[in-house]
Design a protein around this nucleic acid. Structure first.
Lengths: 303, 303
DNA sequence: CACGCCCATCCAAAAACCGCATCGGTCGAT
DNA sequence: ATCGACCGATGCGGTTTTTGGATGGGCGTG
């Protein structure tokens, strides 16, 4: 080894010894507090002073006093030690899943009703888990799950990837969105036949594959052929067209929390009665401990 | 010994190893950066993880990745290390006298002219030394110097204590404070004889012993006997009485920076011409390194 | 002046650490 | 499928560092 103080960096042990000595102003008692004897404690403090190049304690055989530099360094040392303790604590909490951050992807439609309820639930059941929300369509969610940009996604089936675990978190019925003046508003509840050969605003197969396929299947089963006047993928855009009386739209129940003037909702009988499903999906090998706590809360919500 | 992890505290060395590994994501390169070989680095990180009870790095033989807890702990570790470095730096600066705090006592009169100049000088010559100013009379300054409540005092002689070092920092003449209408305002300069048998506001021997004794000696030498109408110890109070035409006062030149309506100043010839002295005093054994730098500045001001 | 208190120093024993050699696992090329 | 390169973990001497008892020396106290 070449040098004397090549390693001009102190260790936490030295800080702890110094704080003890500075608080006791007595090497013997400080050593006792540190569970050691006095000579090594003396040595640790000498080492610390040596790497700093600064005398921290003025010690005569009769009394120990802090130097001005020592007074300042004592404050710094205490801060550092506090920081190490809190760092250890928060890290343990994160590892245990008690705290942490979860990145969440969600579809626009799930944001209307399901997500607000989820946030409330998590706020009380897992208050130290921060939720970072990103709206994205289902296909983007799958991509983001694979790259790890999100930990969990709330999306529409089908989810076929083998590396995912899933959980159905919501099921809901369809409602019709009708403009003011539409004669079908007279009925309390509609059937699919009410849309046969009538203008209907449909979901685009690219941007809203799930709704497009699901509705197509429903109409097929019922033997009904609406007149598709427009294809869109975002529900609030569809309602805007409904308001303009371009046609009517079939939307998930949750969309009734969107209030448009002159747009009214009527329930629609389907088979099954709640054909719209929302799933949570996450990588089975996701190692975010907060995710486990999050999923526990989610499962309790099922009841 | 009771327990397994009785020493549930990590060391800075472990943090440095972890940060290196987390940044390189490669134990070999991290070890190289830490000037050691890979096995001990592995061990340090294992130790850290064991102490925390948390896995920080996910390591396969092919890749190293941070766990969620590790990501958070990395931030904390960096903060801690930065803090240790800055703590060492500031402590060294304080020990060298380059930075620090000096507690200063000063008399009210020195605050009028000398102290503002001093603050300016220190602000440019020793910008990292903080000055904590406390106004107190000379006797209190002596007491505070002895107990260490102040590092340096600016006070009036005599300062006889053996444990003090002193430096004369200012010398000034006397001026007369006269109310509007006083006939002596006609003269550009006064002599002590101009105050013989005339109303004079005098210094109280208790609160302003220095000025009281000094003026008494001046009058004695000149064979002059003014008519003492009032005894005060604070200069601004004396000027208030001058304004009310209770009498005139003899004050140090510095007091001319106090502007009272209807109070005018005229210089007074004395022997010696500058009888008012101000000293800096400090304990010879004061160990505040900033004091040395402060005194250096002070001595340069003498020129 | 002897004694007690307290921090520094010395020294042998213990612990920690380091580096070398090696193992086991994985990926990519052949 | 096999081989070789790569990477982190582990076993093991040798060395450094640390520890704590004994001791020394300075300084107040009785």
């Amino acid at each position: 080894m070449t040098g004397a103080s090549f390693w001009s960096q102190f260790e936490l042990r030295q800080l702890r010894c110094f704080v003890a000595a500075a608080e006791e102003l007595h090497f013997g008692r400080a050593a006792q507090r540190m569970n050691m004897t006095q000579p090594p404690l003396s040595r640790q403090i000498q080492l610390l002073e040596h790497v700093l190049g600064v005398k921290l304690l003025d010690r005569t055989s009769r009394a120990v006093k802090l130097t001005p530099a020592g007074r300042v360094f004592l404050l710094e040392a205490r801060r550092i030690i506090r920081l190490t303790e809190s760092a250890a604590m928060t890290t343990r909490r994160i590892a245990s899943g008690e705290a942490g951050t979860i990145n969440i992807g969600f579809t626009a439609a799930s944001g209307y009703s399901f997500l607000p309820r989820l946030l409330l639930r998590m706020g009380s059941g897992a208050p130290n888990i921060a939720l970072a929300l990103k709206e994205m369509v289902s296909t983007d969610q799958v991509e983001s799950l694979l790259t790890g940009r999100i930990d969990v996604g709330f999306l529409r089936p089908p989810i076929d990837r083998g590396e995912f675990s899933t959980l159905r978190v919501a099921r809901e019925g369809l409602v019709a969105a009708l403009p003011s003046g539409d004669e079908r508003l007279a009925k309390a509840s509609l059937s699919l036949a009410d849309f046969d050969r009538k203008p209907l605003i449909m979901y685009a197969p690219e941007g809203a594959r799930y709704f497009h396929d699901m509705l197509s299947a429903q109409f097929e089963m019922a033997g009904v052929s609406p007149q598709f006047v427009q294809s869109l993928s975002q529900i609030h855009s569809m309602l805007a067209l409904v308001r303009a009386a371009i046609g009517v739209a079939l939307v998930p129940e949750a969309a009734t929390s969107l209030h448009f003037d002159d747009v009214h909702f009527r329930s629609v009988e389907t088979q099954p009665p709640q054909p719209v499903e929302l799933y949570a999906a996450w990588r089975s090998d996701n190692d975010n401990p907060a995710l486990a706590a999050f999923l526990d809360q989610l499962r309790q919500d099922e009841d």
